[in-house]
Nucleic acid binder design. Structure first.
Lengths: 258, 258
DNA sequence: CGCTGCCTTGACACGCCTCAACGAGCGTGG
DNA sequence: CCACGCTCGTTGAGGCGTGTCAAGGCAGCG
């Protein structure tokens, strides 16, 4: 199987085959972690960086009143805590939402890259900065968009991210998330998320099917939210910058009846 | 006058006097920018990093419906767009809220630091990671806290950040922000911000006075929100890690009647 | 002196939250 | 094989927090 980190990074960086080999060498031995378990906890001072290879994880914080906030979804190819060594300790926790395979990369291996493979180091920094860009967009979303658009925007984003990781197949978006977790992500109550999903389905924009989401017409969903993928800083998927190579296969894009 | 960047960085990093001198040399020539003007605009590909020296600036995005979201306050000592070169183009804009003095640091000067002064480079990365931590906390705030606590939390944060930059005097927090801008920051309507400020004042927690905010009892305000400053990753200000040097002077801390 | 920007206030509507109950799926143990 | 308990999804009723609309006040300034 492909390395999702390489697939992702090559969407925003030019990597030589030597670079790719370097990355592949970093990400060899996997650990399996069951669902719903902390990978890193608040206050930890980890000396290794975790890379999600399969499954879905999230960053989260819990408030005193047990309110919880999910601040990021970590899909295959995402790094959990790049350079946490610099800032000292984790100010939040990371846990699995499904069973995950992760790779632990020693901090020192990453540090060495900046001298031995600056191009790879640069690509890793790119991924960090991109995570920050996503965070900003989430803040806008929660602060200024109504419920329907919050959810819809998240789905658009995930579609593009999963596509960039080469993980969309059969026109279905992986979405192994409970409504409660979704609520904690978009800043709504569980019950209102339920009603919101019902509305989205009723408008034929998107609906949950098993542990996936079906989006019959992505461009219509994007139009609905005013989605602008430029904050993802990646090429392809009908974005502004054209790529010479083929885009990833996506089907049912033009079905668009309503 | 002191260099606010050095003051800030030394709150989270150990800097030698040589390091401080290196930073001071980077931040020499200042530019003055009037209030309410873009420093960097969405889509720009700047080749210099902007450092705020005096005044207040913000990151923001504007949605189609003219809704605006402010995603960060940039106080003296804050870097606007560290390593934007890596990610390509700005996915948001930065503008002044008051008249500002800024310093433009060429990207290449920053890049050189990683080899010539790794300790300084590390401190700059620290500031980037801290900005991300603040962003996460804002997301929690907007997503899961009621209006009063959103505003109160922001005030607590700003108090600690201004203190870390050495800019609190007379027990007053600089706050040259209109209610509309505050509304765009905490994700509320202008009118509701007005009512919220009234409530905070009525409960003797905090109130605006001119372009500053008066907080009669910071610990009471922090208790009210459940403020935990650990996400700021800085030492001092009555935090968990004790410093040997005196804390900055703060008055009326123990007044706490209600 | 009349702008204009910002703050303030009231009335009302609506989006979202809370409480409460029920249903569907599924693994487990009797 | 069925009863059970658990988690997750679904639905309804009612209330509260926040948004919207509308109007006015006050200070700064040309």
């Amino acid at each position: 199987m492909n390395n999702p980190l390489i697939t992702k990074l090559s969407r925003g960086n030019h990597l030589t085959s030597a670079d790719e080999e370097t990355i592949a060498r970093l990400t060899s031995e996997r650990i399996r972690i069951p669902a719903d378990q902390d990978i890193v906890s608040q206050g930890d001072r980890p000396d290794a960086i975790n890379l999600v290879v399969t499954g879905l994880a999230c960053r989260y914080k819990t408030l005193r009143n047990d309110d919880r906030s999910i601040m990021a979804f970590l899909i295959p190819g995402d790094l959990c805590d790049l350079h946490v060594a610099i800032i000292g300790s984790m100010d939040h926790s990371i846990k699995t939402l499904t069973e995950c395979e992760i790779v632990k990369i020693p901090s020192r291996a990453i540090d060495r890259l900046s001298t031995t493979h600056p191009n790879v180091a640069r690509a890793l920094w790119w991924s960090l900065l991109r995570d920050e860009a996503i965070l900003r967009e989430w803040l806008v979303c929660v602060g200024r968009r109504p419920a329907m658009k919050r959810v819809a925007h998240l789905l658009c984003e995930l579609w593009h991210r999963y596509t960039a990781a080469g993980l969309i197949s059969g026109g279905r978006l992986p979405f192994p998330v409970t409504q409660e977790e979704l609520a904690d992500t978009v800043g709504l109550s569980t019950i209102h998320v339920n009603r919101t999903l019902k509305s989205l389905k009723h408008q034929n924009l998107a609906w949950v099917s098993g542990k996936t989401v079906i989006i019959p017409d992505l461009s219509r969903l994007e139009l609905f939210v005013g989605f602008d993928q430029s904050y993802l800083h990646q090429i392809g998927n009908g974005g502004k910058r054209e790529v010479e190579g083929r885009s990833h296969p996506r089907q049912s894009f033009e079905r668009g009846e309503s």
